[in-house]
Design a protein around this nucleic acid. Sequence first.
DNA 1: CAAGTGCCTTTATC
DNA 2: AGATAAAGGCACT
Length: 290
Amino acid sequence: MKIKVDPLNPFNLEATLCCGQAFRWDKRAEWWYGVASGRVFKTRQTGETLEIENVNINFAKNYFGLIDELNNVFSQICKDPYIKRAVKMFSGLRILRQDPWECLISYICATYKNIAAIRHMLLNLSRRFGDKVCFDGLDFYTFPTAEDLAQASVNDLLRCGLGYRAKYVHETARTVAESPLDFARLRKKGYEEARHELVGLAGVGLKAADCILLFSLDKLQSFPVDVWVRRAVLRHYAGHFSKEFMARLREKESLASSDYEKLSLFGRTYFGEFAGYAQEYLYHYERTMG
DNA sequence: CAAGTGCCTTTATC
DNA sequence: AGATAAAGGCACT
């Protein structure tokens, strides 16, 4: 099935799948293969044509964020030459709408890890606790449900390479299996309230919560601050903060939660209702060009 | 090639 | 409150 992409509302499949928001996509020859919300499907882009196979078109449009009007997003977030450069470089990168449960576990696993390692952990979890699905002669695995992971022991999870995260995944899986989080309800709630409900799940701090809100719960104002975004702020947005604060940020290894809030709130107020898009462009630009 | 560094941080403990 | 340390192990240099 083919979807036409409007050049005035661009889409860049490669950047969208490579920017580190989702961890379960693989390129085999021409096609990207992925598993999302229990479906295995493939996709490729040539110019203004996006091809999808084995998936419903409305699901794909929503999943790839094609519902967002990027020209409107750009007009709102392009506040300075630096973000303009990042946007120009990766124009068409979109915020995916991932499955909230998978996103939750993914970002519990993502703490203090690099992207390659995160992919490795999530593949291990899916192989061991998900269901095998064959497609195009290749084997894929659905992401395990809360019930699946609640039944896994901490030792099982350790064998997937989760390290200290194993006990957080174990605990959060049990919590969610016991009284399922109503993600649809969280999606309808405001940013602050939804965030408050996520923080406090085992292994979910402010950063992980902001990622889950942005990548799976339609909170496009969420502005997650990781080491790369922190670097981008230090290099290009220092003028928006006091000298003392910037000096502290430079010398400290880790971010105190009050410091995190300061940076994240800056992003939300400075870039506005689509701050999450700004964050993702800055993040990707800093990682690949910095 | 070995060893060191860094990683989309959170939590426990002062 | 606010600072500090500890926590897998993989990938990259």
